[in-house]
Design a binder for these strands. Structure first.
Lengths: 190, 190, 190, 190
DNA sequence: CATGAATGAGACTTCATTCAT
DNA sequence: AATGAATGAAGTCTCATTCAT
C-alpha cells in the first residue's frame, strides 16, 4: 500500500470540477472527488489542506487556464466570439455550470468572489479587444467601448441561463437574429 | 411545550429564503431555518416533508408570487424596467442571490429546473409586453419582439452577475449609456 | 373540530394490531396506528397513556379474547385442534406473527413476558382437556398428559415458524403424516 | 483521534448481536452497538452501509457460523441433540432470543426471511442425518424421515418459547418424559 | 372528545478531517 | 506519497409526547 500513483494536483482539480458539475453542489464531497479521481480521501489531503482550498484552487485554475483558453480564440469577430459561446451552450454546459456554481459559492466567500470578479474583468477586457478590432469606433455616440464589452459579456452569461434552464429555448433562431443586431450596430458605426 | 406558535408556512418559507441567501448554500441547514423562524426543527418537519421540499416550495413561491410582484410593475417603459432592475442590484441583491442559488440547485434537480424555466419564460413574456407598448415595431428588420425580450432579460441577469461579483462595477455609468442604446434603438424603429 | 368519532378502545387496539403485524415492529409508530384507525395521534393519547400501554393492552386483549376464541373450539379431537392450527397457518399468519412479535417484546419487558406465559399456560391447559377427552390414558407409560399437552403446543408454535419462514414448506404432506403419528399414539394407548 | 483500533467486522457483529439480545429490538441502536464494541458510531458506518445491513449480516453470520457450530455436534443421538437443546435453554437463551428476534425482523424483510428459511432447512437436514443414524427405519409406516426431522425441529423451537416465557416451566421433568417418548418410538421401529 | 400544531430528545447517517502505517 | 481505518461534529429526519383550543 501507499504507492506513488503519479497523480498530480491538476488531475485532482479536474476530478473535483467534474464532481462539482455532475453531482451538484450538495453532493460535492471529498469522497466523491476521491472516487472520481480514483484515489482515496487521504490522498486528497496530501495535496489540499481543506475542502475550501480545493474550491479556491478551482477558481484560480479557471482564472488562469480554462477560461482564457476559451477566450483566447483571439482575433475573432464579435460574431464568432458569440458563436463560440453558442457552441459551448450546445455542446456542453460544463463550463457555465461550473461558473455559476462558483458564483454561488462566491456569495458567501469573499476570496472566491474576488477571483470571480477578476475573471469577469478579464472577459470584459477580452471582448473589448475583439470589439476594438471589429469597430473603428463605437456605433453609438456616448456609449464607450468598455460599456459595449460589459454589455455583450452580460448577454453571454444571461443567455447561458436561458439555454441551461429552458428546454424549449431555440438557440439557432436567437443567434440568427442576434447576428442581425450586430450587423446593424456595425453599420451604425460607419 | 407544544404551544401553538401562530406560525404559517409562508413565514417558514420566508425564513428559509433569508437563511439561504444570508448563510449561503453550504450552511443552509434546517437548524438555521428553524432558528431564523424562531421555531424548533420538529416544527419545520411538521410543515415540510423534507429539506428538498422546502427548496421546491421556495421556487414555486417565487414562481407564483415574488417575481410576479416585481414584474407586474406593468405599463413601464423598457427604460424603467431596466432601471427597476438597476435599483434592485443596488439596494438588495437578495432576489438575484436567491435566484442564482436556485438555478444552481436546478442543475441537478429537474423539478427545480423546470420551475426556473417557467419563471424565465414568464419574465420574457413580461418584457415582451413592455416592449410591445414601447415600440410600434421591432427596431431591426428580421429581429422578432420575442428575441428582443429574451435579449433584454438575458442582459438583466448577466448584469446582475457583474454587479454582484465586481466591487468596482459602476452601475450608474453603465445605465446612463444603456439608456442611450435604448434611445437609438427606439429611433431606429421609426 | 373535535367531534366525537364513536371510536372505541377496541377499534384502536385492532388498528394497533394490524399496524404491528403489517408494518412490522420497526415501523410500529403511533402515527401509523392513528392512520390505520383513521384518527389523529392526539386521539390515541386520549385512550392510552403511552405507547407501551398499547402493546400491553394488545397482549391482555389476546389473553382474554382472541386466543381463547381460537382455542375454545372445544370438544375437538386433537386432530382437528392441530388441523385448525393448520388452517390458520394457511389462511393468515396474522395471529402467529402478532404472537411472535409480542414474544420478542417480552424478551425485554417482564410484564409482557408474564402475560405471554399465561397465554401459553392457557393453551397448554386447553390441549390438556382435548387430549383428556381423546385418550383414556396416556399412550406411553411415564409420560403425563401435561407433558403431552406441552409437547403438542410446542409443536404447533414450532411449525408456525417453519410455515412462515420457508416458502417451500409443504403443509399438506406434513399434516397427513402427522395424523398417522397421532393415530399410532392413539392405538398405543389402548 | 483516528487511530487504528484493530477492530474487525466480526467484532462489530458480535457486539451487534449482544446489543440486540440484551437491549432488545426496540433499543437496538447504532449508538448502543458502538458503545458495546467500544468504537464510535462513525466506525460502525465505515464497516456497514446501513443499520439494516448489520442485521442482514448477523443473519448471514448465523447462517454460516454460529448455528452450524451448534448443530455440527454430529454423531449424536437424537436424545443428546434434544438434550443439547435443553442445556441451551437453561444456560443461555442467547441464541434463541437472537433467533426469534431475527424471525420477527424477517416478517417484514424478505431477504432476512429467506436466510432464516435457509437456516431452518439446514437444521432440518441436520436432524435428518441424526435420525438416519439412530433409526434403521421410520418408526411409523407412512411417516417419512423428513417429516420426523421437521417434527423434532419444530418441537425444539416451540419448547424454547415455553422455556423462555414461562417461569414455572420444569425443563427437567419434560425432558425425562420426552426421552421415554423417544425410546418408545425407537422400539416401534424395530 | 378530539384535534393539530408543536416540541425535544434521539435516531440514522454523512462528512471533513486526522493519523498510524 | 499514499492509504484506509477511525473520529466527532453536525446534518437530516422520526417519533413519543404535550397542550391550547
Amino acid at each position: 500500500m501507499a504507492k506513488p500513483t503519479g497523480i498530480e494536483k491538476s488531475d485532482l482539480l479536474l476530478a473535483a470540477k467534474q464532481s462539482l458539475v455532475e453531482k451538484g453542489i450538495e453532493k460535492f464531497t471529498l469522497k466523491a472527488v476521491a472516487e472520481q479521481a480514483g484515489v482515496t480521501q487521504g490522498t486528497i489531503y496530501y495535496h489540499f489542506k481543506t475542502k475550501e482550498q480545493i474550491i479556491l484552487e478551482i477558481v484560480q485554475d479557471i482564472c488562469e487556464n480554462s477560461w482564457n483558453e476559451i477566450l483566447t480564440t483571439d482575433q475573432q469577430m464579435i460574431q464568432s466570439a458569440l458563436l463560440s459561446a453558442k457552441s459551448r451552450y450546445e455542446n456542453d454546459a460544463f463550463y457555465h455550470k461550473l461558473f455559476f456554481t462558483l458564483i454561488v459559492f462566491g456569495f458567501t466567500n469573499p476570496t472566491i468572489r474576488q477571483h470571480i470578479g477578476q475573471i469577469l474583468a478579464a472577459e470584459n477586457e477580452h471582448l473589448y479587444n475583439v470589439l476594438d478590432k471589429l469597430w473603428d469606433t463605437s456605433p453609438i455616440d456616448g456609449v464607450s467601448m468598455e460599456t459595449w464589452s460589459i454589455f455583450f459579456n452580460a448577454l453571454i452569461d444571461g443567455l447561458a441561463i436561458q439555454v441551461m434552464m429552458r428546454d424549449d429555448f431555440d438557440v439557432d433562431v436567437f443567434y440568427q437574429q442576434l447576428e442581425k443586431i450586430l450587423q446593424t450596430l456595425h453599420r451604425l458605426g460607419k
